[in-house]
């Protein structure tokens, strides 16, 4: 999967998408097409866009308008770029189920191929950030400590020290970053989904983003060490206080009950 996505996010991803779309239609699922960009097939591209447009018309147009121009129920998608589509649809946030303070992440209902077609269509509406390739968010060449500093400056205020998430106004929230695909984190920084501000490359460089992702992987990955024991959700003093009351004082009171209890008598009266 990772390998696949690596190639998919090549700078000329759109072309790959086209080929994939071709492969789908042709029933040739066998291999992912190599990025043979030079022979970009105009008709293949338009085919992907056409496929994407069909998907869009069914799943998205009711809120975002038939041409992606936006309605009162959904913002304009002109110029949001392929990265925004890949993030929103790839994390299951879109299509949205119901209106609310915030659209939460859900089960993804489109295949990656369909997402790519949708992305190709939206990208065709106006220029925007492309889906990043793996070398942009991979661990090579990342400075974890610098990423930590950047994370605390730019991200921790909403997402907590190690990305456990936090509250915003009126029921909105910054989601937990645990288990989120680095690609999606990268795309979120680039595009600023929903109420999250964007951190475009002009102010948060590509290297900065790479550092932040590497830091997150170090402190909130699957293998992250919590030397002291249970991390208690990484939420800080509230969960610690609860734990101290329930398991610290609770255990001690249980012990005290035993210490002070009467010993069983020889004959029960």
């Amino acid at each position: 999967m990772k390998k696949l996505s690596a190639r998919r996010r090549h700078p000329l991803a759109a072309l790959v998408v086209l080929l994939l779309a071709l492969a789908c239609t042709g029933g040739l699922y066998a291999a992912f097409a190599p990025a043979s960009k030079a022979q970009a097939d105009e008709s293949a591209q338009s085919l992907a866009i056409d496929e994407g447009k069909k998907l869009y018309a069914v799943g998205c147009a009711s809120c975002h308008g038939t041409g992606g121009q936006g309605t009162s129920d959904g913002p304009s998608l002109v110029g949001v770029g392929a990265a925004a589509v890949d993030f929103q649809v790839g994390t299951g946030r879109m299509p949205a189920q119901q209106p609310g303070a915030q659209v939460p992440k859900k089960k993804v209902i489109y295949s990656q191929a369909e997402i790519d077609q949708l992305a190709a269509y939206i990208a065709s509406l106006g220029a925007g950030p492309a889906i990043p390739s793996e070398e942009k968010y991979g661990p090579e060449g990342a400075d974890i400590a610098k990423g930590g500093e950047l994370f605390r400056t730019n991200c921790a205020q909403c997402h907590n020290f190690t990305g456990k998430g936090g509250a915003l106004t009126h029921g909105k929230f910054a989601p937990s970053l645990e288990g989120v695909d680095p690609k999606h984190i990268y795309e979120a920084m680039q595009t600023g989904p929903q109420n999250m501000p964007s951190f475009p490359d002009t102010t948060l460089s590509e290297q900065n983003k790479k550092d932040i992702i590497a830091y997150l992987d170090a402190v909130n990955g699957d293998d992250t060490e919590s030397p002291g024991g249970l991390s208690l959700g990484g939420l800080g003093p509230v969960s610690e206080g609860l734990f101290a009351w329930v398991f610290g004082l609770g255990a001690l009171i249980a012990v005290a009950v035993w210490v002070a209890a009467r010993t069983a008598k020889a004959k029960k009266s």
Binding site: T153, G192, T202, T203, L204
Partner: peptide, 21 residues
Amino acid sequence: VNMNTNEPLRPSDVAVGSLTF
């Protein structure tokens, strides 16, 4: 000066909807 990159900011760097310190 942008705290992320340590470079002075230009107006074109700052996009609508973005946040910079």
